[in-house]
Every structure is written in C-alpha cells, then in structure tokens.
Design a protein around this nucleic acid. Structure first.
Length: 965
RNA sequence: GCCGGAGUGGCGGAAUUGGCAGACGCGCAGGAUUCAGGAUCCUGUGGGGGUUACACCUCGUGUGGGUUCAAGUCCCUCCUCCGGUACCA
C-alpha cells in the first residue's frame, strides 16, 4: 500500500464527535400520523437495574442496525424506547440502600440512557415512556377497569403461591422450576383474596391464533402451546356412598372399565365429607403434610407415590363396581377437577400407586402391537416343555426360571391350551400382553374383573403356600422378570373387558364411550387447560395501584376513569412495606355513595404494565386516551419485535391476551400485537466458582484457576452473562479500550443472532483490527478519488477493475438481503470484509481508476455505516461528503454488475469433481450448450479417456455431472 | 419422561433452492519491518498420500444405513450437548 502517513484511527475522538449528532438532527423522530412506508421496530424494553452489559447490548445493537438500515432505505421507522420501571428489584435495592425506589429507578434510567448514547444507539426519545410514571400507569389502571367491565378481571379467594423472600404472591408463570422467578426461594401456599385476569377465556384463541403467527419462531409457539396445555376428554361423574357427585376429568374415557379406584387431591373439597370416622385422623395428617411440603417435594417426579385411603367408596358408572376413594398428592388440586379415576393398567402413575398399595389392576385396552407373552415356571411342567412347544410351532426361550414363549395374537388360545395340557399337579402359568390370563390345570382364568383378580390371588396363594405375598394378580406378574415391559401400556387400542364396548376399535373408543356417558347423563365431553387465570395482585409498594374501592354499602366499586390515576402515596421510603402498611392510603370515600370506604391496597403485577406498552408508544403524550385507535390500527401489529427468549411465555402470552381483549372491547382493530418476532441468543462467558467462596470475578482468579482465598480448584461453568455469577463484561470498559463501533461490529460478527455465543477477547481484537484497516484504507484512497458524483464506467475498466466493480455491487446486494430478509448480520459483516480486502488489493495499483475507487469507497462506507455509525459518519465526511450517510441513503445496485462475462463451471465425473471449465455467461445459462462445452473441453476429455458417457446432467450456471461406463 | 434446537478444521462460524465443503474472522507457523517487544504487512494453514517443484490422488460435515448423476442439506436408526417443561389425569 502507498506509504501515506495518516493519522491513526482515533476512535475516542471520532465517537465523541458524532455521539450527539443523530439526536440533534432528529433523524429518528417520526410522525405517527404518517401512513406511507411505515415500519414499527420494537425491542423489548429493559428493566432499569443498574447497568446494561454487553449481552444486553446485543439486543439493542441489532435494533439500531435495522433502524439505521430502514432509515437509509427511506422508511418512516418508529423505534421507541422506554422502561419497565416498576417491580420488586427496585424496591429491594432501594431498601438495601435506604432510598426511595423512584430515586433508584431514575438514577438507573439516566445511566442506561447514557449507555445507549455511548453505544451509538438512537431512539426517538420524545416518545420515552416509563411504566412507573403516573401518566403511564394511569392507563394501566384504565386497562384494568376495561377488563373489569368486561368481566375479565375478578376477585376470588384462592390458594396462591406466596414467596416469603419477596413477601408477595406470584403468578403461576412466575414460579420457575418450583422456585420464585426472582429469588429462587420455594413459594408457600397461602389463601388470600386476590385479583385475577380471566386469560382462560381466551385459551382457545391464544392457541388457535398461534397458527397465524407465521413469522414467529416455532420454538416460542410450541412453548406457548405447551403452556396453554389444551386436553380433550370427558368429565365423568361417580356417585359416592354418601350420594355425592365425584366428578373426574379424563382424556381416556375409553378406559373407564379399568378404573379400580379413585384419587382426590388432598385439598379436594369433598375429602372431609366422605372420609369415614375411623380414617379421619390419618387423612388429616396426610393432608396437612401434603399441603405444607407440597412444592418442595412435589418437585421430584421420581419420588415414591404416597396416599391414604379415605374409607369411602364410589361406584364406577360403567360396571357398577364399588371402588375405594383415596387421597394422594400426585393428584393436583389445580388441574382438571382435582380428582381422577385411576386406571392403573393404562396410566403409569396409577400403576405405580396401585402396585404400592395393592390395588387391583385390570387391563381393558389391547396393546397396539398385539404382542403377547407367556411364562411357564420350570417347576410347573416337564423338562422337555420347550421341545413339546416347538413341535407345536411355538418358539420357546429357556431361562433359568422357566420357559418364555411369544405367541402370535391369533395363536394365543392355542398356546394357552398347550400350556394347560402340559401343567403338572400344583403348577400354574400365565399369559400377558394382548390377553391376560392365569392358567391352572383345571381352569384358565381371564384377568378381567376385580372378582377374577381375587380368585387368581386366592388360587395362587393356595398353590404356592406360605412364601406367597402378592395382593393382586398384577403384583404376582411384576415378580416375573420375563414380563418386564409387558404389563403396562398406555396405547390407544381395542377395548376389552368392557362389557358391550369390548371390541370397539381404538380410534372410535373415546367418542363411543363419551356419547354413551352423555346419553346416560353420567358424563360429558370436556376440555381442560393447563393454563390458569392470571393472578395480578401483588402486596408491594412499587407498582400500579389496583383502582378498586370497597364500600360497606355498595361493595366492590371501580374508581371512575376521571379519578385516575390512583397515585402511589408519596412517602419517604423507609423499609419493607406494601400499600396496606402506609397509614391513610386505604382511607377514601365511595365513588358511588360518598360514604367512607377502603381502597384495594395491592398493586398490579408488572407484567400488566408491559402487556400494553407497545400501544402507548404511538401516542405517548395523549392525556385523554391510552392510545389513538386510528394511529395504532395503522402502526400495529409491530412489524418486528425483538427480545430475549426468556419472555417466550410470560410477557408474550399476556400481551397477546390483552390485545385480544382490547380487540373485543372495540379499542383496537387487530388481534395480535407482534407480526414478526425474533428472539436473540444470549451472550455467554465462563464463570468461576469456588466450592467454598462462591462466584469470583475473572480478575480475582489466582494462577492455575484457583481460588485466591482458599487455593481450591475452581469450577468453570459456562453461563449467559449475569451479575450474580460475576461473568459480565461492562461495555464501558470495551468502549474505552476499542470503541463502541468495535463492540457493535464484534457483537454482530461473532455468530448468528438467534444462537447463544461466547464473548471472546480475541474476537474483539479482530474486529478492532478490521476497523483500523478500513480507516487506513479509506484514508489512503481519499486523495485519489474522483469527484463525489462520479460513477465507474465498466467499459473503461480492465479485468481487475471489473472484478472489483462487481464485488462492490454484489456486496451491496448481499448486505441488503442479509439485513432485511435473513437477519444474518454475521454474514453481512463478512461480505463487507471481503469487499474491503478486494478494495485494498486494487488500491495498491498506482493506476487505479479514480471513478471506480470513488464508487467502491463510498459504498463501503455506506454499507458499513449502520453497523459502525460513528466511523461511518467520520469516513463519509473524510471522503468529501457533506451530510450524514443516513441522508445519503442506501446505495443503489447496478444490476449489470451482478452478472459476469465468463463463469467457471465445475464438471463432475461419477459424482466426483474432475475438472473446471470456463464458459461465457450465455453458455453457462443454457443447459444444452453447457453440456456440449463440457464434453468438448480438452481437460474433460483428458480426464475421461476413452470411457463412454452414459448420461450428462447440466445444471445452468451451476455444474455439469457426467456418468460414465 | 415429553417438547424444541443444535452437532462442520485447533476455535467462532459460512455454504440462502439438493450442485465446487470449510467463505469471513480468530489462533498458529514462516517471513518482512524493528535494538527489542508490541503494532503493522506478506505467505501458508482440514487429515492422509504423492511430487525436486507443480500436478494430482484419497478420506472428510456426531453414528450407522438409505434415496440421488450429486447429500452438511432430504428420509430412517442411534449417540451427545443445549434450552423449555415436568406427577397436567
């Protein structure tokens, strides 16, 4: 390269020069009255908790690149930012520091805003919103009242998850892996009067409309689907001896004849009523234990199932059998009806429970594969049994305990007869699988009812003597190793042992039984959801107060809209408290009768705040409405929403629910808030953990990966960045050392944005090096450029010039596609690197074409500018332009430059690459001509020798494949 | 257990519609520059074979099989890792 002495890349000066520029010029201010060419880009707004690390940065950097790109393409792009500012951490942090949460929050917001500036990330700050601002939460309260009006907000006494650490209740969705989402401690059950949003009314629509969200990641849709957890089945009513209705939900009504006992959740309302006096003490003790221990113990699915018999019986409506009613904590009070009919033969949990407590297990569904297996104990037959069976056409396996044979489905009866005929006195055998029966010398007893179960056990006990312990036929069978995997199945299959339904084919069984139940008024078709109503009450201070007043005469009264907002009391913040603890807050007058009344003292879950914020950005300053319908109908659904996958369920499900509710209320004209969703991967880094001293900062770690305090070897787990694990990288350090442009470039370059990536110092250095090279390259070229209006004329370029010219335009096109269509920033960056490499090589020539240099340098700077905006501004001026790259617009592609005169086409022989031919573009595009060119090429002829070409496949512009001999 | 996603050089990754595997970057090696280190620049860099040198051959995208003129890409089997969820009847 020419030995120009240039100033080095002084990123600090460059970044300082442009930091305020974009805001001052108002490039990203948008008028939401605009109707043409509009694009609503939205990042999930952050919770202002201290500072943002480089992992958070990834999200916003992606957004900023897109915003700048769309701006250059001439869109009216809306990219607002706000703060999810209410919530527990603010309160807890404030308590620790003895200051008001508002103060703490505002300080963090100011800091984060500064971070965005340092990153070169620009928002329309005129639209900034903060959920803790009364001008905002007034409308959160309005939303509550709208839902209330429609009956979607209601209060009920319920047992809820209470986090003792955070001193508040949690929504179902906020209990993660059995612990509190925020602090991880185990929630305790607590019964309280609480407000709920009736999201279950929308379960079907939330589920069905997922199909419309074509541009959402499949994984997120699947997670929501699982969370909603729709199950179709039936509710079946059993009568207890006390004449009470015991209603169960089941997805398998076709297994009703196999229901040999019932299980209620320990909390079930009927437990007290039906428990017989002699069982009261035992039942009460079990229930207390279960309720207290529930969430900690219930975590383990591998735990032995426990339960207690209530002494009560119910009648199976299918066969009028009297079956015992148990309670057990494996049945959840919160799902279905809190009670089940246990079908141990076809439900794994019921099977385990029945085996443990000696309850009968009756198979009523045939195996789908129709396999059967018979086991004949060695002592039951003669030693030559295997030969006899084989002579009859049954392959037999001889084990140390006896003989195993697997007859075909239609051969089972013959096998049973054979075995019966071979039995010695006192011997017995059994067959399981598609048919269950016990074989005795004088009888074959099908295992098809409680009565036969008893008979089988009695006979076996008699024959076996004192060593016999089993309580049920199935228990006997579980002791036979050969039957492992044969005794239980949950297949859909033909019904058996089910009265007149026996023989009903599996695919018809459920409907047939349900229909019969409905006719006899014994049950009905039913759908159950895993999804529960959304608990929104929180017993804390830092949130939007619930706008409801309780009046002794009028009852529950909503605060009139004109009286909103119900403001948080302005108290000096001194410690842990909810609104209930603040003297005077609850005292008010009834809006209806004017008498003395009491305010609700709970605040709303912060997910309510964030469930509608995307609407407020359109008209953030409107004092009369939450939003203007005409405007939101135009701007929404959000064109592109980007955020962390950790919100796949909570925030996104709640937002979808609120949008649908507002649609039904006539406030918006769309049913889904986010048209396209992208969830970016997390940024990870090795963490250091001492078994004794906990997490350590990387710089604390002593030589040889040891703890500085105790010298123990450290664990090095690999985690997404998190302050608690001390593996975060503070962007201020990176920006100070190499600049924001380098951080931005590296963040995009290190990997595909939807995947988790590891932050690496070497990667940062590489990106920094590249920007230095670009700086030097552009500086070198600057004095040699043609006037800034010039364009290269391909007719005057030599081969190298033409190659570069094509590279320039191919790059522009690739970067456009990668950013706009593919969300593939890493490949956009590498394309830019390739352009820079080619340009550098060409620029070494003394006779470089000034017009081409101009075209190449300008376009390099322009396509780089959304990614590295500081450098983009600086270099754009350096090469003689006046305005910003944002004003220059996205460069136009010269279509002619995308083609080529000649193309190199690979030629394969028998699937192996053997030669390359160079042909004109015209020939390459024509299969016939291409094939001919390949066959006539000397190189190909030489490779082929004198073998015969059987077949030639020519794919235009791609390759030629020859099949020989 | 169930539901997703992923497995490609020493490393991050690329290959967009079944068509030249390893773009781009890091690291490493050799060289230039330098008193020296760093920085910078140049060259090389999947494994094996082969050549004085080129050429060239061969293997190769977690495993095993299949479809095809052609497979990282499609189908089946299995393994590993990551994420979500977990007694949901």
């Amino acid at each position: 390269m020419t030995a120009h002495v240039n100033e080095p890349y002084d990123f600090k000066a460059v970044e300082a020069r442009w930091r305020e520029h974009w805001n001052e010029k108002g490039y990203f201010r948008v008028d939401t009255k605009a109707r043409d060419n509009t694009f609503y880009y939205l990042n999930m707004f952050p919770y202002p908790s201290g500072y943002l690390h480089v992992g958070h940065g990834r999200n916003y950097i992606i957004g900023d690149v897109l915003t700048r790109f769309y701006r250059m393409r001439g869109y009216n792009i809306l990219n607002p930012m706000g703060w999810d500012a209410f919530g527990l951490p603010a309160e807890n942090a404030a308590i620790d520091r003895g200051i008001h949460p508002r103060e703490w929050t505002e300080k963090n917001i100011a800091y984060a805003k500064g971070q965005f500036g340092a990153w070169g990330i620009v928002y329309d700050w005129d639209r900034e919103i903060s959920t803790c601002d009364p001008d905002y939460y007034r409308w959160t309260q309005w939303l509550f009242l709208e839902l209330y009006k429609k009956g979607l907000a209601y209060r009920k006494r319920a047992t809820v998850n209470y986090c003792p650490q955070c001193k508040t209740v949690l929504a179902n969705e906020q209990v993660v892996g059995g612990g509190c989402e925020r602090c991880g401690s185990a929630p305790e059950p607590k019964t309280l009067e609480q407000w709920f949003f009736k999201i279950t009314d929308y379960a079907d629509r939330l589920l069905d409309d997922l199909a419309k969200l074509e541009n959402w990641p499949e994984s997120v849709k699947k997670m929501q689907e699982n969370w909603i957890g729709r199950s179709e089945g039936a509710e079946i009513t059993f009568k207890t001896e006390t004449r009470d209705d015991l209603v169960v939900f089941t997805t398998r009504p076709d297994t009703l004849w196999g229901a040999t006992f019932m299980v209620l959740a320990p909390e079930h309302a009927l437990v007290d009523k039906i428990t017989t006096p002699d069982k009261k003490a035992e039942v009460a003790a079990y229930r207390d234990r279960a309720i207290r221990a529930s969430d900690i113990d219930r975590l383990s699915t591998e735990r032995e199932k426990t339960g207690v018999f209530t002494g009560a019986y119910a009648v199976n409506p299918a066969n009028n059998e009297k079956i015992p009613v148990w309670i057990a904590d494996y049945v959840l009070a919160t799902y279905g009806t809190g009670a089940i009919m246990a079908v141990p033969a076809h439900d794994e949990r019921d099977f385990a429970f029945a085996i443990r407590y000696g309850l009968p297990i009756l198979p009523v569904i045939e195996r789908a594969d129709r396999r059967a297996r018979a086991f004949v104990p060695a002592a039951a037959v003669g030693a030559d049994f295997d030969k006899v069976a084989r002579d009859d056409g049954f392959p037999v396996e001889k084990t140390s305990h006896g003989f195993v044979l697997d007859p075909n489905w239609d051969d089972v009866n013959r096998a049973v007869r054979l075995i019966q005929g071979e039995l010695k006195a006192g011997g017995w055998a059994s067959v399981v699988g598609t048919r269950f029966a016990f074989i005795f010398q004088d009888a074959v007893i099908a295992h098809d009812s409680v009565a036969t179960d008893r008979e089988i056990v009695a006979r076996c006990a008699l024959l076996t003597g004192a060593s016999f312990h089993a309580r049920t036929a199935m228990e006997i069978l579980t002791q036979i190793p050969a039957y492992e995997g044969f005794l239980f199945h949950s297949d859909i299959g033909t019904m058996q042992h089910s009265g007149r339904f026996s023989g009903t084919r599996g695919h018809l069984a459920k409907d047939a039984v349900t229909e019969w139940l409905e006719k006899g008024q014994k049950g009905k078709k039913a759908i159950t959801y895993r999804l529960h109503d959304w608990l929104i009450s929180r017993q804390r201070y830092w949130g939007a107060p619930i706008p409801i007043v309780y009046c002794p005469t009028c009852g529950e009264v909503p605060v009139p809209e004109k009286d909103l907002p119900v403001k948080l009391p302005d108290v000096a913040f001194i410690g842990k408290m909810g609104l209930a603890d603040i003297p005077g807050y609850a005292d008010t007058t009834c809006p209806t009768c004017g008498g003395k009344a009491r305010r609700d003292t709970d605040t709303m879950d912060t997910f309510v705040d964030s469930s509608w914020y995307y609407l407020r950005f359109i008209n953030p300053h409107d004092t009369r409405r939450a939003f203007v319908r005409d405007d939101v109908d135009h701007w929404l659904p959000v064109n592109q929403y980007v955020g962390g996958v950790e919100h796949a369920i909570l925030h996104l499900l709640y937002s979808r629910f609120v949008t649908k509710a507002l649609y039904d209320l006539g406030h918006v004209g769309f049913e889904e808030p986010f048209a396209r969703l992208f969830t970016q991967g997390m940024v990870c880094l090795t963490a250091y953990k001492c078994p004794e001293h906990g997490w350590l900062y990387p710089k604390e770690v002593a030589e040889g990966n040891r703890c500085p305090h105790c010298g123990k070897a450290l664990e090095n787990p690999y985690f997404s960045m998190s302050k608690s694990k001390k593996n975060v990288v503070d962007p201020s350090e990176i920006i100070d050392r190499v600049g924001a442009d380098t951080e931005r470039l590296y963040t995009l370059f290190m990997g595909p944005p939807d995947r988790d990536i590891e932050w690496s110092e070497e990667g940062i250095r590489g990106s920094f090096r590249f920007l230095n090279r670009v700086w030097t390259l552009v500086s070198d070229c600057a004095p040699r450029l043609a006037p800034r209006t010039a364009a290269a004329d391909p007719a005057t370029l030599d081969a190298e010039g033409l190659a570069l010219w094509r590279r320039v335009h191919r790059t522009v096109r690739k970067v456009s596609e990668d950013i706009q269509d593919r969300f593939s920033f890493n490949t956009a960056v590498s394309a830019i690197m390739e352009l820079a490499n080619d340009l550098a090589k060409y620029a070494e020539r003394k006779d470089a074409d000034p017009d081409l240099l101009r075209e190449a340098v300008d376009r390099l700077v322009l396509v780089l500018s959304p990614i590295c905006p500081f450098l983009g501004e600086e270099l754009w001026r350096k090469v003689g332009h006046d305005g910003s790259p944002l004003e220059a617009g996205w460069p136009r592609v010269v279509e002619q430059a995308l083609g080529a005169d000649t193309v190199e086409i690979p030629v394969q022989v028998n699937g192996k690459l053997r030669a390359r031919i160079t042909v004109s573009a015209e020939i390459a595009a024509d299969a016939k001509a291409l094939e001919k060119a390949a066959l006539e090429s000397d190189d190909v002829k030489a490779k082929l020798g004198d073998v015969k070409v059987l077949k030639a496949i020519a794919v235009p512009n791609k390759m030629v494949s020859l099949v020989v001999r």
